[in-house]
Design a protein around this nucleic acid. Structure first.
Lengths: 239, 239
DNA sequence: GAGTGGTCTAGACCACGAG
DNA sequence: TCGTGGTCTAGACCACTCA
């Protein structure tokens, strides 16, 4: 037996995909929708919560529920096959970066293998498509290993490590979770929409950590791709 | 101002981590907890929903709310650095597999690059720690490329591709989402606990798809690790 | 059958956003 | 200020589990 809220969610899904409600459009208020479906507002809200978790609807407090614009799915390419960590896109994809020097907070000392409060360059990084944020990144570079020409910007910031000594190893660890309140606000996603959390640690030939990057990618508009090529014939690993 | 439900959730989190409520233990009923905190049952339930999404509490309909046993975090190791796709664990980690021959359903023909309804071997695969499922995998091998000695079992099933012709490429695509109802039931996780979804496609030297694997890993107990080694000195890629 | 969580109601009041 | 969503109440009734 489909519950009331699932039936309503399904009906709204239909109306959205059929174009009855268009991307960017504001839905009728929750009170109106509750009347239309003859349910209480709580039931209607729980139906909207389902759509929210799917990334179909965005709620804006004090303003309304909006049909989310379907966003291009972006791909983060990891591993050796990636010349630059962010692939290029045909669509206009805006990037913003903010650089600041900080002292290593405790949760980073283990990751970077540096003493507490040692100087770091932090780059806050975001990609946007139109007005909608696509992804977030925090990138940390120990100051004594940073390129000598700040400020970093654009893709250079993301691949800062490449400017340093030759890398010997890059580790990328990926997990899935719900966004923190702040991430949800910044990315303008529902707190119930899963995100990919990727931690990339680059090490140089001497074993020092050259760069750590913490990426947050909304599950409805990003995924991560790794391609592993195996040696055939006399071919060796590709970079 | 922290809302009522966040305060309650925080208090319960404390009581769980302090050992006042122990792993596996049943919490007081929602009515009792609602009285204790002098809130309505709906408010209390929304507090529990927060803990559920964090994987701290498991609700069992008609039975109660239970403190989840903290599970060992497992790591799926991807890419060339992985001799076997599933790393070994010190803890007893049970694996179950069920093999069946099917005809390629439509959503797999593109992935496997085979004609519709061509014969496949499907392996349903699960890992458990104790009674709790850790992960799910659906593995598909085109029949004409399968090893000649079925039934596959254990880790062999997961690395079936290795028995075939030498691989030339493995693609692993990862995304984050909420589980389907069925996945949530099978993995015994909350529908609001994010999962990693990993699609692995292995191709042999002739360009044919040898194996496709669809993995589902609960976000609270699994992550994925890729290690990329760069050639230094005369060293080449490792397998 | 007794007790649990699951769904739903019909309100009240608060917090936010835009005009 | 007004309309929006956010939180919360105090119930009712249903569905499930276990003894």
């Amino acid at each position: 037996m489909p519950s009331r809220r699932h039936a309503i969610a399904e009906d709204l899904r239909q109306q959205i995909s059929s174009g009855h409600f268009k991307p960017g459009e504001r839905l009728p208020s929750e009170t109106q929708l509750a009347n239309r479906y003859t349910v209480s507002t709580s039931t209607l809200r729980s139906a909207l919560a389902l759509l929210q978790g799917e990334g179909l609807v965005e709620k804006i407090h004090g303003n309304g529920n909006f049909v989310r614009r379907p966003l291009r799915r972006i791909t983060y390419t990891g591993g050796a096959a990636a010349p630059a960590p962010w692939t290029a896109f045909s669509a206009p994809l805006r990037m913003t970066a903010r650089t600041m020097n900080i002292e290593a907070p405790s949760h980073l000392t283990a990751l970077l293998n540096v003493p507490p409060q040692s100087p770091l360059t932090e780059v806050l990084f975001a990609t946007h498509e139109g007005k909608t944020p696509h992804s977030l990144a925090h990138i940390y570079v120990p100051l004594d290993r940073a390129p000598t020409t700040p400020p970093l910007a654009g893709r250079i910031a993301v691949s800062a490590a490449e400017l340093c000594a030759p890398l010997s190893e890059v580790q990328e660890r990926i997990s899935a979770r719900l966004p923190t309140q702040e991430e949800a606000r910044t990315l303008r996603i529902s707190p119930s929409l899963a995100v990919l959390s990727l931690t990339r640690v680059a090490t140089d030939a001497t074993g020092r950590v050259v760069e750590a990057a913490l990426l947050v990618l909304p599950g409805d508009r990003a995924d991560v791709l790794f391609t592993t090529l195996f040696a055939t014939e006399e071919r060796s690993s590709k970079e």
